[in-house]
């Protein structure tokens, strides 16, 4: 990175450390923090959307839709996460490549699945073998986001379903008495009121999501845990910057990162909780009302 780093074997002390911490490999390590943050920022809303859809489907009065919603949550919640993380990206990848195979490949007799192998012609590969590495990474990342969203969406669906059931029946009944249709009740009364019941469950999911990101490496995305292990491991003289096993320091760095993320999330979530409790017929809402009233009097 710097001109003074050209010959690391001549460096000592702080200068060595400065050069060491700015190697290309360390830059990839720093970059992977953004990958992890990006994953969380994209996955959270997508999973919430999946969850919302799942919860509404599970409450639906149309039977097939209800079966779908209940089936989705029951299945994903019942199967170990790691199985899903291994299965979904591979199934999606092979499924997409198979579709492209039908469309883009010259007809051939060779079976696509045979003998443990999955063979499609070069034009059906996704991304193409010849496309730049960045596309392979973006593709892997996208598959990872979908896998995460399916798994976390199912948990979110269950949380939201529970929250919808928790809205006092009296509230909905009053709305019905005013002549609102089922759809209007759902949109105007049920959904605005359920968030306060859903938030504790959703905040748990967010915390689990933060800590689940190392699973990315399982999906072939090089995340912070992969780089910490790779950079920290013993480096013999074949490397420019030899050092003994430093994994403990790198993992302490990750510990600080994860604790920082947790702290930040907690303070944001407590604000949202306060905001959502306002005017609600819950204990927290009641307490807010009394406090405001007391100050006024």
């Amino acid at each position: 990175m710097f001109a003074s780093c050209a010959d690391p074997s001549q460096l000592e002390g702080l200068a060595w450390l400065m050069c060491y911490l700015t190697t290309g490999k360390h830059m990839l390590f720093y970059g992977s923090f953004f990958v992890v943050l990006l994953l969380m920022v994209i996955t959270a809303p997508v999973a919430l959307l999946f969850g919302f859809g799942g919860a509404l489907a599970a409450r639906s009065r149309v039977a097939p839709l209800r079966w779908f919603g209940k089936g989705y949550t029951a299945m994903v919640r019942g199967v170990p996460d790691i199985v899903f993380f291994l299965f979904v990206p591979i199934a999606l990848d092979q499924g997409l490549e198979y579709l492209r195979h039908l469309w883009a490949c010259p007809p051939s007799d060779a079976p696509v699945w045979s003998n443990n192998e999955f063979n499609v012609c070069a034009a059906a590969k996704l991304p193409l073998s010849s496309s730049p590495q960045i596309w392979h990474e973006a593709y892997g990342f996208t598959l990872a986001v979908i896998a995460f969203a399916i798994v976390f969406g199912a948990f979110a669906a269950n949380v939201l379903y529970g929250a919808m059931q928790a809205v006092p029946r009296a509230q909905l009944e009053t709305a019905e008495a005013y002549g609102m249709t089922h759809r209007q009740v759902t949109r105007r009364i049920l959904i605005p009121q359920m968030w306060t019941y859903a938030l504790p469950g959703l905040s748990n999911l967010w915390m689990i999501l933060i800590k689940a990101t190392p699973l990315l490496f399982l999906l072939g995305v090089e995340d912070i845990v992969y780089w910490a292990r790779e950079l920290g491991s013993t480096k013999s003289a074949i490397y420019d910057y030899p050092h003994p096993d430093w994994r403990v320091w790198y993992f302490l760095g990750l510990l600080a990162f994860y604790l920082g993320m947790t702290k930040l999330s907690e303070s944001v979530l407590s604000r949202i909780t306060a905001r959502l409790s306002r005017g609600q017929a819950t204990m927290a809402g009641e307490a807010q009302r009394k406090q405001a009233g007391g100050a006024g009097a």
């Binding site: 690391p8 070069a122 193409l128 790779e230 013999s236 074949i238 490397y239």
Partner: peptide, 29 residues
């Protein structure tokens, strides 16, 4: 990826572990 072309169909992707020096490893770059 599709438009990037059929021209270079002969790209071979070489899989390695990257953690077994001196056979293969990730260098400081």
């Amino acid at each position: 990826a599709f438009s990037a072309g059929f021209a270079m169909a002969d790209t071979i992707r070489m899989g390695t572990e990257g953690a077994y020096p001196p056979y293969n490893f990730i260098d400081d770059k």
